[in-house]
């Protein structure tokens, strides 16, 4: 189910150049360059604290880069004259902790930004919202509040919320890390289907089997820099750098490695 990586389009979906980010004295990103092509699925892996989340959050400017540029299909986000709210609506973001709006029902979680940001009518927003709930398999829960949903359902509603804005690309920050193991599969299946449908995706994840099977490209980060990147079979299967090997051997402990070798059947 892998797509042709890096189909040469005129504009990269995401182009990051010379990206630096510091929190006070702590330099977290130390010069990052990479591009994501339209339709490409890029998985970002790396040890805790290596700056994966920070990188992802710089892509939609939830964090303000200290230096460098981020461009989305040619629109430079880091340009101070760009209306960031107009750009952000084109980028879907899914968080580790779901961040659903607890005071709104599942369906209202999906309609509020459609109505307030895109100016869709109530009926239109509901129609699109319901279609997306169906897409992630939680349509029977449209009137439930987030607290009444399981973690897996909440994360799928969060994905549907992002999809309802018709984004050009989706960012995922460890979408399954907060989930009980038995709920991870449902969320990954939804993401897998999105990838198959051609969505441009940037996914920070510790799910090596997902990265191996779904990603067009894997990026390994450590200490605020990209150590190596390439096809999953290369980066995960045959890493060139010692740091990558150390990380992978720690993540792919015997038990996890077995699962990977068996390989879950694609959804």
């Amino acid at each position: 189910m892998t797509k042709v990586a890096g189909t040469k389009a005129d504009e990269a979906a995401i182009r990051v150049e010379g990206l630096h980010k510091s929190f006070g004295d702590l330099e977290v990103l130390k010069g990052i360059d990479f591009t994501v092509s339209p339709g490409e699925v890029v998985c970002v892996i790396g040890p805790s604290g290596s700056g994966k989340s920070t990188l992802l959050r710089c892509v939609n400017l939830l964090e303000e880069p200290t230096a460098g540029t981020v461009a989305l299909s040619g629109t430079e986000l880091t340009d101070p004259d760009v209306d960031i709210d107009r750009v952000r609506r084109r980028i879907g973001m899914v968080f580790q902790s779901f961040n659903l709006f607890p005071h709104l029902s599942a369906l209202d979680n999906l309609t509020i930004a459609q109505r307030r940001v895109l100016g869709r009518t109530k009926d239109e927003a509901k129609r699109i919202g319901r279609a997306n709930l169906l897409r992630v398999g939680v349509s029977e829960k449209e009137s439930a509040y987030p607290a009444q949903l399981s973690g897996g359902q909440q994360q799928r509603v969060a994905i549907a919320r992002a999809l309802s804005m018709d984004p050009e690309l989706m960012l995922f920050d460890e979408p399954t890390s907060a989930l009980d193991p038995e709920l991870v599969g449902d969320v990954l299946a939804v993401m897998r289907r999105l990838a198959d449908e051609g969505m441009t995706m940037m996914v920070v994840t510790h799910e090596m089997s997902f990265a191996r099977e779904v990603a067009d490209r894997v990026v390994f980060m450590d200490g605020g820099v990209i150590v190596e990147e390439g096809s999953p079979s290369r980066v995960i299967g045959d890493p060139q750098h010692q740091r990558t090997r150390t990380f992978l051997s720690r993540v792919l402990d015997p038990a996890a490695a077995e699962v990977t070798e068996d390989g879950e059947p694609p959804a």
């Binding site: 952000r88 879907g92 973001m93 968080f95 961040n99 709006f101 930004a113 940001v117 969060a158 919320r161």
Partner: peptide, 14 residues
């Protein structure tokens, strides 16, 4: 929680 504002902003809300 801060994540609420981040989720809202990531959907394009001002």
């Amino acid at each position: 929680p801060k994540g609420q504002v981040e989720a809202a902003r990531s959907l394009g809300m001002s």
